[in-house]
Design a protein around this nucleic acid. Structure first.
Length: 856
RNA sequence: GCGGGGGUGGCGGAACUGGCAGACGCGCAGGACUUAGGAUCCUGUGGGGCAACCCGUGGGGGUUCGAGUCCCCCCCUCCGCACCA
């Protein structure tokens, strides 16, 4: 065997690193949408140094882009940076620089990393949301929304994050904590800007059904988030008052079971009742109760399983169905933000009301009965059934009663069918510097005045950044003249939520440098929706919901003609790594851990736990480290091979080495053959012997599998299939090195290199040249498989007895389809085993198996 | 509580419409080459048994010639939402 040059990945990767960019393989003319394919990764926040876990979706995206390019599509695969946001400000405060410097430095670092990975983007289309040429159009968007009444300013109780010193949207609070810094969120009453996403609640919900290529869990999360409830609004009269007490219920069929009413402590009627309260002592007690609940508020009241508490107001409501007098309470579990801020209490059929009633000795009445629930009520029966004790409605089913009672109330002007949503309007104000200024001016004479479009952008003041300075502290910024009357005026000093920036950036990529408009509507209508969108699950009810809303709003304004931005969505999983913790020295990087899982500093045993890669737990792996040791191709291959892309997977150093070994095998295989493959003559399958046919079949089988797997996001099995092919070719070569069919080998190695190239582009580009080609891999067509080649000359037929494999039979392909012949041969072969048994039945699956059913 | 995923060797995971469970890789064991190996290559590797064979996809039932796959009941686990009337 001649010596084969070692796989020198450093040299190879250096050679091809700039090649693809320089050749502009992914430059796209968006005026031409012939066979277009818009692939998009969620653009990243430039938070700093990337680890191998971050590489996952970009590497997969690059493989997909390369694949479709070879399939002959025009692939748009752009990248940009979601560059406004808090971490930049915090980092700037810490390092006494400007957020811009930190942000730009990170962007440059990340771009270098993408380049090292061999990921090819069209950088001419790069977007940075912190640049005026981009955020100008955020402001434009705001103004369009303002014109349509979709942007408004209102006093509201909002979420305030003390850590970030700004307000947050509902979507950005999880379990009472800030999504970014995990601080406990407080409530504040403030004047803030909102986008009226609730106007689209119904459409956002309905159109989820259209998104059949979205993961089910994302659709479910959005459905829950929007939280639609169909029900009835009912007006109860209040004894001794002209006011009505309006409630919302999804169960009007239980209205005869109402035995109390309850108001949220913030409900306006509470103040009114207190004002009318003649007894000063009771008034004081009531005030104290309300105060206490409000204090307890945000933290405890939001949490589940808080004991129900109430206070009787001394007032009564009248049940519109039967005229009964019903006591009105104030209750801690009634939320002002939902429905009308008041409820009708039905202890028999609502568990919360049941607990309340038990606590305060309120009557519990059964008005719904079903087979599962008769006899005594030990807890509320919340199911549907038949009405009892319900006057003229007794005997109806819950469903019938829903409509009948709704209609009855409606006809008497005491109620109406209504739909309620959990989703709230999107709070977009942020009290921070590093964001898009909201283009509004407040004038004493003219009031709230939008900045004219011709005056956009309202630029961030270009001042040295010193500490936590919001725009409200920068007079150079906020002192201005009123665009309407020219008089002195003050600019809005809040900036926009960065989620505004990302809610439409996918449109900007089509014409990223157009300074006359946010996007080219014609080109956008040709190129959108995004054909494939890929990113993390964490944006299920944030970015993905906002983007859908903005798209629909733009559609209604006539700017775009589609109503969903992302046709297909895929959520990649996280990469995890062991994290080690020492009781004395805290987190220890896995590579520093001493033999026997001990701390390198003190020798104490460490606690080991598999966790998501994160800087704070010191369990990240730097891509550079892997690239230095094994090359970018190895990292790419391992990243795609380690497991299904949607799943969380552990990173192991051994796994990386396995991928490296494989690439070495490919290298050795191709190079051992490459020199022998000149003038190989015509590939003639008719000349194939049995062995060659097997190789040929394997080749086509692999092409088919890899093609289907890439399109189905199953990169792990695609790589596995290629490994099988390499094993087969290696076996073929070693079995009979002197008699290798060179035409077959040439074709097999070429196809191998081509189908492997989306995963490991560097080595494949190199091997492609070594196989004697001058042109680039990305200029080649994706290999097609030949269905006839998949058919083997012989078939192996499994012989089962009573469903268990007992023997095998090899037959020519034609016989494999011949039932009678199969049965004859199978029975002959297992004769011995059938002694003394009675054949009851023979099941034949042509080409696959014969199952002989026997009785003793 | 409601909703959505998952449960397959020592590990990550394969398995088209029900049709050879464990592809591919890691790890491990043995061997080769080496001064050496945490490098490389070869062989083996679900469990039990000398073997024929038996047992095996969270548990229990069922349908079927045949079930990881379909149906019913249950358990565990991850994620999302959660006093939303």
């Amino acid at each position: 065997m001649p010596r084969i040059a070692k796989y020198d990945f450093k040299k190879i990767e250096k050679r091809w690193k700039d090649f693809w960019d320089a050749r502009g393989f992914f430059k796209v003319d968006t005026n031409n949408a012939e066979k277009k394919f818009y692939y998009l990764n969620m653009f990243p926040y430039p938070s700093g140094v990337l680890h191998v876990g971050h590489g996952r979706n970009y590497i997969a995206g690059d493989a997909i882009a390369r694949y479709w390019k070879m399939r002959g599509l025009t692939v748009l695969n752009p990248m940009g940076f979601d560059a406004f946001g808090l971490p930049a400000e915090n980092a700037a405060i810490e390092s006494k620089t400007h957020p811009r410097e930190w942000t730009i430095a990170n962007i440059e670092g990340m771009k270098r990393q993408f380049h090292e990975w061999g990921i090819v983007y069209d950088w001419d289309r790069e977007i940075r949301t912190c640049e005026p040429e981009y955020y100008k159009w955020n402001q434009w968007l705001f103004l369009q929304f303002y014109k349509k009444g979709l942007a408004y300013r209102a006093m509201a109780v909002v979420n305030w994050c003390p850590g970030c010193e700004t307000v947050l949207a509902n979507e950005q609070v999880s379990e009472g904590r800030c999504w970014r810094c995990d601080s406990l969120v407080e409530k504040k009453k403030l004047q803030q800007w909102f986008f009226k996403i609730t106007a689209y609640a119904d459409q956002l919900l309905k159109d989820l059904d259209k998104l059949e290529h979205w993961p089910e869990r994302v659709r479910v999360m959005q459905r829950n988030w929007i939280g639609q409830s169909q029900g009835v609004e009912i007006d109860f009269s209040i004894e001794g008052s002209a006011q009505k007490l309006r409630v919302f219920t999804t169960r009007p069929d239980t209205i005869f079971g109402v035995t109390f009413m309850a108001l949220a402590p913030e409900h306006p009627l509470v103040e009114e009742f207190l004002a009318d309260e003649p007894d000063p002592k009771r008034r004081e007690e009531a005030r104290a109760f309300v105060q206490r609940v409000l204090q307890q508020g945000e933290i405890a009241r939001g949490a589940a399983n808080v004991p129900k508490e109430g206070f009787f107001t001394g007032r009564f409501a009248i049940n519109p169905m039967n005229g009964e007098k019903i006591p009105i309470y104030i209750a801690n579990y009634v939320l002002m933000e939902y429905g009308t801020g008041a409820i009708m209490g039905v202890p028999g059929h609502d568990q919360r009301d049941y607990e309340f009633a038990k606590q305060y000795g309120v009557e519990i009445r059964r008005v719904i009965e079903s087979d599962e629930n008769r006899g005594e009520l030990r807890s509320a029966f919340e199911g549907e059934g038949r009405l009892v004790n319900s006057g003229e409605f007794t005997g109806l089913s819950s469903r019938e009663a829903f409509h009948k009672i709704g209609e009855f109330l409606q006809s008497r002007g005491q109620g109406r069918f209504a739909v309620n949503y959990r989703m709230r309007d999107w709070l977009i104000s942020r009290q921070r510097y590093w964001g898009t200024p909201i283009p509004i001016v407040y004038c004493d004479r003219c009031g709230t005045v939008p900045v004219p479009e011709s005056e956009l952008p309202v630029k961030l003041p270009d001042i040295p950044f010193i500490g936590k300075k919001g725009l409200a502290e920068i007079p150079e910024f906020y002192k201005t003249a009123c665009p309407q009357c020219g008089g002195p005026a003050k600019r809005e000093t809040d900036t926009m939520d960065t989620f505004v920036d990302s809610s439409w950036y996918y449109l900007r990529f089509i014409s990223p440098h157009d300074d006359t408009r946010p996007f080219d509507p014609q080109a956008v209508n040709r190129w959108l929706p995004v054909d494939q969108y890929v990113g993390g699950i964490e944006h299920a009810t944030k970015h993905l919901l906002y983007s859908r809303f903005v798209t629909k709003a733009l559609r209604d304004m006539g700017y775009v003609q589609f109503d969903e931005p992302f046709a297909r969505l895929f959520n990649q999983g996280m990469i995890e790594h062991m994290a080690y913790r020492c009781s004395e020295h805290n987190w220890i990087h896995p590579h520093e851990v001493r033999e026997g899982n001990r701390c390198p500093h003190c020798g104490r045993p460490l606690q080991a736990e598999l966790r998501k890669m994160s800087k704070s737990q010191r369990n990240t792996i730097s891509p550079q480290e892997v690239i230095d040791q094994y090359g970018a191709d190895t990292e790419r291959l391992y990243t795609l091979f380690m497991g299904p892309l949607e799943r969380d997977i552990e990173w192991t150093d051994e796994g990386v080495r396995g991928s490296f070994r494989f690439l070495n095998r490919v290298w050795a295989l191709v190079l051992s053959q490459a020199r022998k493959l000149t003038d190989v003559g015509v590939l003639d399958t008719a000349q194939f012997g049995e062995r060659e046919r097997k190789v040929w079949q394997k080749l086509h089988h692999t092409i088919k599998a890899v093609t289907e797997d890439i399109e189905g996001f199953q990169f792990n099995t695609a790589v596995a299939a290629i490994m099988e092919l390499v094993n087969e070719l290696t076996d073929y070569v070693t079995e009979q090195p002197k008699r290798v069919n060179r035409a077959l080998m040439k074709r097999a190695l070429e196809d191998l290199v081509l189908i492997l190239s989306p995963f490991t582009p560097f080595i494949c580009e190199e091997l492609w040249r070594r196989l004697g080609h001058e042109d680039a891999v990305l200029e080649q067509s994706w290999p097609a498989y030949d269905p006839t080649a998949l058919r083997a000359a012989e078939r192996e037929i499994v012989i089962q007895i009573n469903g268990k494999v007992r023997d095998r039979l090899t037959v020519p392909a034609e016989i494999g389809e011949d039932r009678a012949e199969l049965e004859r041969r199978a029975l002959a072969q297992i004769q011995r085993r059938l002694d003394g048994k009675q054949v009851v039945k023979v099941i034949i699956v042509p080409g696959k198996l014969v199952n002989v059913v026997v009785k003793e």
